[in-house]
C-alpha cells in the first residue's frame, strides 16, 4: 500500500493530478481511494489531494502518513507536514519556493513551474510535470496507465503537451 499526498494552491491542478494517479492505479488493478480538501473558492486557497493505492480494500481511505508528498506551494508544507511520514519522499517545486522544513527522508526539488513556462510558455502543465516525477518514485503505476488516463481526461488538443509534460517530469535527472 502507498499513500500519496499532493498539496498546492487551488487552480494549480493538484486534485486533477491525484485523480489521474488514482485512475491509473485502477487500470493496474489496484484498489484506489482519492479524496481532497479545498476551500469554497475555486482558486487561491490551500488545496490538498490524497491517493491511497493498495492491493485490497482499505479501511481508512485517507492518507495517515504520506509515503510520497508532492507539494507545489509553500503554504502546503506548513499546513500538511504533520501528515507526512518520516520515511517519505518529498517532491517540491523548487522554482517556486525553497524547502526549509526538515520533512520526510528524502527531499527532491523539481523546477516544474519554470520547466512548464520554458517549454509551454505557461505554468499550466507544472502539475503534470510533478506527476511525472512522482510516478518514478511511486513505482505502482507506469507511464502507459497514466497516458491512457490522460487520453480520457484532457481535451485532445492538449494531449500531446500533457504527455510531453509527463515525460519531462519522469525523465528528469536528479
Amino acid at each position: 500500500m502507498k499513500e500519496i499526498m499532493f498539496a498546492g494552491i487551488g487552480g494549480q491542478g493538484v486534485i486533477l493530478s491525484a485523480s489521474i494517479l488514482a485512475r491509473a492505479g485502477i487500470l493496474k488493478g489496484y484498489y484506489a481511494a482519492q479524496s481532497q480538501s479545498y476551500g469554497s473558492e475555486s482558486r487561491g486557497t490551500a488545496t490538498r489531494a490524497e491517493v491511497v493505492l493498495s492491493e485490497e480494500f482499505v479501511d481508512f481511505p485517507h492518507v495517515e502518513h504520506a509515503d510520497i508528498f508532492v507539494v507545489m506551494a509553500e503554504m502546503g508544507v506548513k499546513l500538511f507536514a504533520s501528515k507526512v511520514s518520516q520515511e517519505a519522499i518529498v517532491l517540491y517545486d523548487n522554482s517556486v519556493f525553497e524547502l526549509s522544513e526538515n520533512i520526510g527522508k528524502e527531499r527532491i526539488g523539481i523546477p516544474a513551474t519554470r520547466l512548464a513556462v520554458d517549454t509551454f510558455k505557461k505554468p499550466l502543465y507544472a502539475n503534470i510535470i510533478m506527476l511525472g516525477a512522482m510516478m518514478r518514485h511511486c513505482g505502482m503505476v507506469g507511464p502507459e496507465e497514466i497516458k491512457t488516463v490522460l487520453k480520457e481526461t484532457v481535451p485532445s488538443k492538449a494531449l500531446a503537451d500533457n504527455i510531453k509534460a509527463l515525460e519531462l517530469g519522469s525523465g528528469l535527472e536528479y
Binding site: 488514482a22 485502477i26 482519492q34 479524496s35
Partner: peptide, 8 residues
C-alpha cells in the same frame, strides 16, 4: 468525506 471520496 464519502460524498467527495473517489473509490473503487
Amino acid at each position: 468525506a464519502t460524498g467527495h471520496l473517489r473509490e473503487t
